[in-house]
Design a protein around this nucleic acid. Sequence first.
DNA 1: CTGAAAGCGCTTACAG
DNA 2: CTGAAAGCGCTTACAG
Lengths: 342, 342
Amino acid sequence: MATTIKDIARKAGVSISTVSLVLNRKGYVADETRDKILSIMEEMNYKPLHSARKLATQKTGNIGYILWEGHFSEVEMFYSQVFLGMEYAARRDDYYILLTTVNDHFDPKEDLPRFLKYKDVDGVALAGRVPLELVKYLDDNNIPFVLIDYEIPGQNYNSVKIDNYNGAFRAVECFVRQGRKKIAFVGGTFFHPSIKERYRGYIDVLSKYNLISRKNPEIYSFCEESETSRAIGEKGIKSLLSSYPDIDAVFCCNDTTALGVISGIQSLKKRIPEDIAVIGFDDIPPSEFSSPKLSTLQVPKLDIGKEAYKLLYERICHPNIMPQTRIIPVELVIRESSKCLK
Amino acid sequence: MATTIKDIARKAGVSISTVSLVLNRKGYVADETRDKILSIMEEMNYKPLHSARKLATQKTGNIGYILWEGHFSEVEMFYSQVFLGMEYAARRDDYYILLTTVNDHFDPKEDLPRFLKYKDVDGVALAGRVPLELVKYLDDNNIPFVLIDYEIPGQNYNSVKIDNYNGAFRAVECFVRQGRKKIAFVGGTFFHPSIKERYRGYIDVLSKYNLISRKNPEIYSFCEESETSRAIGEKGIKSLLSSYPDIDAVFCCNDTTALGVISGIQSLKKRIPEDIAVIGFDDIPPSEFSSPKLSTLQVPKLDIGKEAYKLLYERICHPNIMPQTRIIPVELVIRESSKCLK
DNA sequence: CTGAAAGCGCTTACAG
DNA sequence: CTGAAAGCGCTTACAG
């Protein structure tokens, strides 16, 4: 048998109430008493039993982390890193993070994650694109939640976002400063708000520098209505180059796509960055090892998880505070694929 | 307030004991009573509170899943998929899986995962290479555990392994059948038993077909003492080809390495599979999209997780059963990188 | 086959 | 500042 609060109380010659008070840093306890109890706890290696605590406080001590299955199964380490960031942050408050996935076809009656069905979480983080019905369910049932890298138009929810617009803006502006004129965009479905925002940043730079205008309305962009992949990147750039062989820079909606773009450019025997410069978005691990190494916008994944946790935690503690949005800045990392030409 | 066992009992006109009995499918309850209770539960959407249940049964209802941080942060989706497999299997018994990472430098006093420190799990799955001290800790403390894709020499623990040897054997034999003679191996550290086994399979095929022998002892293998990566694959094949330009096939310790090998071969302007055939191991998602598409040994990741769960569960229920090892078969998937030549 | 009662290990007003 | 007591929602011998 593990040692319990009773054992501590007995050994310290106090009641279990007092032990509980010092355990929870609540109420007034004489310094002397507190120190004694603390040292006995230490000595006996006492750890309160979570299930007992949860039963008494009517809290679950868990947070759910829900990810669309497609995201989890693909090359995306992105949301796994965000998960880790949450898990690190949650240690502070002894929260456990329960990870599960949901499908596209989501019916709240059938597909509700177990931890929601059994009310085993105090709140939920939704990572990336998730079914609307799920969000609605959480909202209707007053379950605190936070959206990560996703937003629902017209709704004001707790959310943590990447600074997609400014990141894209900076990347494309960097091309312009290098004197590049024909800057293409390769991406996936705009169904994901992040991609849309990145595209918006791209367009705004072109406008700012008159690279598109009324007399020059051509936009070199390829967007496939599907999840991003290397394959799409390769296909996209090949398609663009066949129509516009003088493209000299490509901004990609993310690194996965960019790695495909690099392959595509190389298979056409063009040089990177001499002929065409490439910048991605996300900074996934392979980007550092690609050849040439991929320039990209570094997204601090662990920080995103951490912020998401903090937001969610606040909401759990104060259910009535206003929903907040936190924008996480990104950093432009210039590597070989967009090096400045001499 | 959610509905409790009391509410059900009152409405059914029975005691909470009886409700509990039907909840747990225990003891004898009159069919009529049972049906009535069941339908009332359904009607009131009753779900037992896990923390209360856990407190009463002295079980935690959780299983820990521990992963070396390096594995989680790298390109490896492998162990995430295994995790998913466990999570699916665990639904059957209402177990939650708690995922966390550990570092290389592991001190049981400092770095013990929270769920172990607080005794919040009934058992633990160890995925891939984990610190020996951790395994020792679990063993010493009689905490049920299962090793996934890892083994500890000289120890007989519950474990789920990939059929590395036979997979490798089949892949290399496939090269031989195509008439290839100079078959190379590119890999990472043998510190990981799986890689060692794959190498063993490779060598045994060479011996079987007299591709190595006393008068022909040359082995074309490159193994870097580090974690595998695309970079290592690229470096490895370039190094091998500079010494042995007539290599006509490469078996790689895993797909990540193989993708690097492909880049390396392509940068040297050799054709795949005409000049050199390539086979990897694991079947990670990018392998299907590489150009050429990578032949590989498909490892059923979800099944591994499922088996690991089952093994662990049995062990939790029957602490004294003998440790078992389950070998999960793999399937050779021939894609473009090792297509047969006409 | 069913119910009353004790117990799991904690928290939390409340009284002093 | 501290303790006695009730309570959180369940399970489990035990008695009948």
